[in-house]
């Protein structure tokens, strides 16, 4: 190998274990220096991008897997076809009723200021992409929800909610928080705790066919979304009791 070939290979693969490459570097001080400078550049480049991984990310990766596994297991207990049709029919009816209520009782999307709208849009986008799986163990859901809350807001706790469904930790884009749901007598209610600046005051609105409530709480906002007002009120009062701050 001559110096030109050596330098070509050094630029392509400075850690090459090619015999003639190693032999040449042992015999030619200039080429040894050359490849040394390239290795140094690589090492400097790599360390210029060193970052600390968020302390809770590894735990979240692990927890996500456990939650997914639970869902996979739960899905084995399949919902029978007739029940599926019944659920679809109920859903369509609820959507129609909620849409009607939303447009009459809670105003329209246009009346919502941008802060609230951003929160609601974030939660709805998330709900559409990450549907809550309707089979869950309350003990497990409570324990996992508290684990996640602890990683976001250590002083915040959730008292046991027997109707809590929390299927998995999932991406929430720009937001950090918890997305879960409560089974109430009047249907499923989704709620999200979003960490960040609190909005100035409680706000109810109709949004994308849901009745929604954005509520400022310590360390962030609580967003509750339901197909019916009654279910929303019930969930809100349950969450009022369940969420507390350990200070």
């Amino acid at each position: 190998m001559n110096c030109l070939d050596f330098k070509r290979l050094a630029l392509s693969d400075p850690s090459s274990r090619d015999h003639s490459f190693i032999e040449h570097s042992a015999q030619c001080p200039d080429c040894l220096k050359y490849v040394g400078s390239i290795r140094q550049m690589d090492a400097d480049l790599s360390s210029s991008m060193d970052v600390e991984m968020p302390s809770d990310l590894m735990a979240r990766l692990q927890l996500n897997q456990e939650l997914t596994e639970e869902i996979e297991t739960a899905e084995v207990i399949a919902i029978n076809p007739m029940r599926r049709y019944a659920m679809a029919a109920s859903f369509a009816l609820a959507l129609f009723v909620a849409g009607f209520m939303a447009s009459n009782q809670f105003g329209s999307n246009n009346d919502i200021s941008s802060d609230y709208q951003a929160l609601l849009a974030g939660v709805v986008e998330h709900m559409n992409e990450q549907a809550i799986t309707p089979v869950w163990s309350a003990e497990r859901a409570n324990s996992n929800a508290n684990t996640l809350l602890a990683s976001y807001a250590p002083e915040m706790k959730l008292k046991f909610l027997s109707n809590l469904q929390f299927s998995r930790i999932c991406p929430m884009g720009q937001y950090k928080g918890l997305h879960a749901s409560l089974e109430t007598a009047d249907g499923q209610v989704t709620f999200a705790f979003i960490k960040g600046d609190s909005v100035s005051e409680l706000f109810d609105a109709g949004y994308e066919g849901y009745v929604s409530r954005v509520k400022p709480i310590r360390g962030g906002n609580l967003i509750i979304m339901s197909r019916t007002n009654k279910a929303l009120q019930e969930a809100d009062s349950q969450l009022e009791e369940a969420m507390y701050w350990d200070i």
């Binding site: 990310l57 990766l61 996500n64 997914t68 596994e69 991406p171 929430m172 884009g173 720009q174 950090k176």
Partner: peptide, 18 residues
């Protein structure tokens, strides 16, 4: 972006699990 990096990583690991 930190948040996006975490999100994509979580999704990627979930796909890896599957």
């Amino acid at each position: 972006d930190k948040n996006m990096a975490e999100d994509v990583m979580q999704e990627a690991f979930l796909r890896a699990w599957k």
